Amino acid sequence: MLILAVVALAALLLVMRNGFGELVVLSVGASLVLAGRYAPGWVQIWYAYLLTWLLLFSGPRSVLVLHRARRRGAVGSDADKLAESTHLPALFWVLAFAAFSLWCALKGAVLLLA
C-alpha cells in the first residue's frame, strides 16, 4: 500500500503546478519511502491506516469545499459542467457527490473497524 501511494504521488507530481504543493507531495513521498524501507512492520501498518483514514475523510471535506465555493459564486466546477450536460441543477450534483462520498466513507470505516 505504501509503494502504491508513492507511485500515485509521483503521478500527481507530474501534473502539479504549485510550488508549495510539489514540496508537500515530495515530503510525503519521502516519508512513505522511509517508512516502507526502514520502519518496523507495525509502524508501516499504522502509517497505512493513517493514510487510509485521511483519504476517507478527505472525500466529504472536498464536497464541502466545492459547496462553499459555489455559494461564493465560483463557476466551472465539475458540478457546473454536469449541470450543463444533463440539464439537472448543479446543486443536485453537489448533493450526489456528498451522498456518494459519505457512503464511501461509511463503508470504508466499517471495513477498517471490522
Rank of each mutant, 00 (worst) to 15 (best):
L34H: 04
R17Q: 14
L112F: 11
L51Y: 04
L91S: 14
L55Q: 15
R37M: 12
L102K: 04
L14R: 15
A79E: 00
L91E: 14
L82G: 03
R17H: 07
R70M: 06
R72T: 05
L66S: 02
G21P: 08
P40K: 07
V63P: 06
R71D: 04
K107W: 01
L23I: 10
R70L: 05
G76Y: 10
A114P: 07
E22V: 06
A99Q: 04
A105L: 07
R71I: 03
F20P: 00
D78A: 15
G19W: 09
D78V: 13
P89L: 00
G41M: 08
L23C: 09
G108T: 02
A79V: 00
G19L: 07
V25Q: 08
R37C: 12
G21K: 06
L56N: 02
G29S: 09
E22P: 03
A10G: 13
G76C: 06
C104V: 13
R71A: 05
L9H: 01
P60N: 03
L26W: 01
S85M: 12
Q44Y: 05
S31P: 09
A98V: 10
L113S: 08
L95W: 12
L55V: 12
V6Q: 11
L14Q: 15
V7N: 14
L113G: 09
P60V: 02
A39G: 08
V24E: 00
A90K: 02
V65F: 03
L56D: 00
L112S: 09
I45A: 13
L102Y: 10
A105S: 08
I45D: 11
V6E: 07
V25T: 12
I3N: 11
A109S: 14
F100R: 06
L54R: 09
G108D: 03
G36S: 06
W46Q: 15
G36K: 05
V28Q: 05
A10Q: 15
R37H: 10
V75D: 11
L112Q: 13
R71G: 04
G73P: 04
T86W: 05
A109G: 07
A35S: 11
C104R: 08
A109V: 12
L4H: 14
G19Q: 11
A35Q: 10
V65S: 12
A8M: 03
S85G: 08
Q44T: 04
K107Q: 15
G76I: 14
